[in-house]
Every structure is written in structure tokens, then in C-alpha cells.
């Protein structure tokens, strides 16, 4: 199941713990990124087979998308509110508050909602995927799949990846709606800005491209979330302890990669 090429990663991690420090940590991180890329390639190649088992993806969409709505709603309320409070504080004495809506809108659609939603969802989904795959490995279910000539990537990873990639934009649009609503309520309650001024300001300098990029990049984040969870799940060893370790590594790596991809996409597109 696991490529023999993975052995150097384990060896590097071991020597890293012995005190080779940052340089080794960087090697380990890039080695993981390499394997995650390899897994992503294998997943994409098998993606067309999805149509033979559409029900698996729909089930995952429900788990990954609908069951995350509550979590995303709660975080989005505070993201929207916090954006208004921060902008008001930064503006005070320098910029008129008639631009408050514009700044909040830009911040929410380009960065805050996509990135924070991705981080929140990754904390729930990449860990869940790592734990599921890891415990399947520990209980020999992955070996059983191989014995029955069932490809774990096709039956386990492809549906989860498709679900993550499809549901992340939906979750982000939902998050933006909630965050806008929360920002309006916060602005009306805690600042002197009127509803009309705030809404007019929201429309000021609004470019559909910003919204599109903000939503589209979450598809990349969805891929990152699924791949890191799957990779560390496949890599887990040592039973229950290994599963715990895999979930921790999955969420850490997913968070870092989401921010890296966010920067790269911003750099390339904006």
C-alpha cells in the first residue's frame, strides 16, 4: 500500500527529533508535500471513475458540506463582526466611516471568509479523513480492500476529494452571506453608520472578479484538505497512537498548505 519511497520520510523525521533542527524539518515538510502531490495525481487520474459510484460522493458531500454548516455559520458571524470592529478601529481619526462597508466587503470576500472557512473545515475534515484512513489501516481494512482487488484511492479518497472540492465553494458562499449579515448588524449596533450608507459602501468598488477568485480558490483548499488527511492516514503506523499523530500532522500541514496556496494564488491572480 505504502510506497517504499516513504521510508526516507520516517528516517528524516526520526533524525529531526534527534536535533537536526529546522533544515531537516524543511526536508520532511517538502517530502510530505511531494507525496501529497503524488497522491493528488493518483486521485485526479481516478476521478472519472467517480461516475460508477456517485452515491459515495453524495454521501461524503452530506458529511463534509451539510454537517459543517453549523460550524461555518458560527465562525462566520464572528468573522463578520470582527471585520467591522477592526476596520472601525483602524479608520478612527484617519478615514471616514462611509468606506467601512467597502473595506469589510473586500476583506470578507477575498481573504477572511475563504481562508478562515478553509481552516475551520480542515480542522474538522482533514482530521476526520486521517483518522478514518488511519484506523482502517490499523484494523487491516485497507489490506482487505487490496485483497479484494478494491482500490482504496478510488473507493475512499476520490469521493472525499470530490466532496471537498465541490462543497468548499458552497460553504464559502454561505459563510460570506452570514458574515455580511453579521457585519451589517455589528455596524448598525456599534458604529454611527446608517444601513443605507453601509450598503452603498458595500457596492462601492465591488468587482465580481474578487468574489470569483475568493470562491474559486477554495476548490484548491478543498483538494488540500482531502489530500493531507488521506496522506497522513495512509502513512499512520502504530495503531491508535499513530492515528492520533496522523490527525495532528494532517491538520497542521493542511493549515500551512492552505496559507501557502492562498499566497501563491493571490500572487499569481491579483
Amino acid at each position: 500500500m505504502i510506497s517504499p519511497l516513504r521510508i526516507p520520510v520516517a528516517a528524516l523525521e526520526k533524525t529531526g527529533r534527534l536535533g537536526f533542527g529546522l533544515r531537516n524539518a524543511a526536508y520532511v515538510f517538502f517530502a510530505h508535500v511531494l507525496y501529497i502531490s503524488e497522491l493528488a495525481y493518483k486521485t485526479v487520474v481516478r476521478a472519472p471513475l467517480l461516475f460508477k459510484n456517485v452515491s459515495l460522493s453524495i454521501e461524503q458531500m452530506y458529511i463534509i458540506g451539510l454537517e459543517s454548516l453549523g460550524l461555518v455559520a458560527v465562525t462566520s458571524v464572528f468573522v463578520g463582526g470582527e471585520a467591522v470592529v477592526q476596520a472601525t478601529y483602524q479608520f478612527s481619526g484617519y478615514v471616514t466611516l462611509r468606506y467601512l462597508g467597502m473595506v469589510v466587503c473586500k476583506a470578507l470576500i477575498t481573504e477572511l471568509c475563504p481562508v478562515i472557512t478553509a481552516l475551520v473545515v480542515s480542522s474538522r475534515i482533514s482530521t476526520a479523513i486521517a483518522a478514518e484512513i488511519g484506523s482502517m489501516k490499523a484494523t487491516e481494512q485497507l489490506d482487505a480492500m487490496a485483497c479484494l482487488s478494491l482500490d482504496p484511492i478510488r473507493y475512499l479518497i476520490v469521493p472525499k476529494t470530490i466532496a471537498c472540492v465541490c462543497m468548499m465553494p458552497v460553504l464559502v458562499i454561505f459563510s460570506e452571506l452570514v458574515a455580511f449579515t453579521a457585519s451589517i448588524i455589528t455596524a448598525l449596533l456599534f458604529t454611527d453608520v446608517s444601513l443605507t450608507t453601509y450598503l452603498l459602501s458595500l457596492r462601492m468598488f465591488f468587482f465580481p472578479k474578487d468574489l470569483f477568485i475568493g470562491v474559486a480558490k477554495t476548490m484548491v483548499f478543498g483538494m488540500v484538505i482531502a489530500m493531507t488527511g488521506a496522506h497522513f492516514g495512509f502513512q499512520s503506523t502504530k495503531g491508535a497512537e499513530g492515528v492520533g499523530e496522523a490527525t495532528t500532522k494532517a491538520v497542521m500541514t493542511a493549515a500551512v498548505l492552505i496559507l501557502v496556496f492562498d499566497f501563491v494564488i493571490a500572487f499569481l491572480v491579483l
Binding site: E140, Q141, S149
Partner: peptide, 19 residues
């Protein structure tokens, strides 16, 4: 291994049922 696996079956120690 694809072809031989069609002729082989395995019972794992803990059965390894898909939970």
C-alpha cells in the same frame, strides 16, 4: 498481483470488516 488475487481469498485475524 491483480490476476492472482482473483484466485486468492484471505481471512484476517480481526476479520477486517469495513465498519
Amino acid at each position: 498481483f491483480e490476476e492472482p488475487r482473483r484466485k486468492l481469498g484471505m481471512l484476517f485475524q480481526g476479520a477486517a470488516l469495513f465498519d
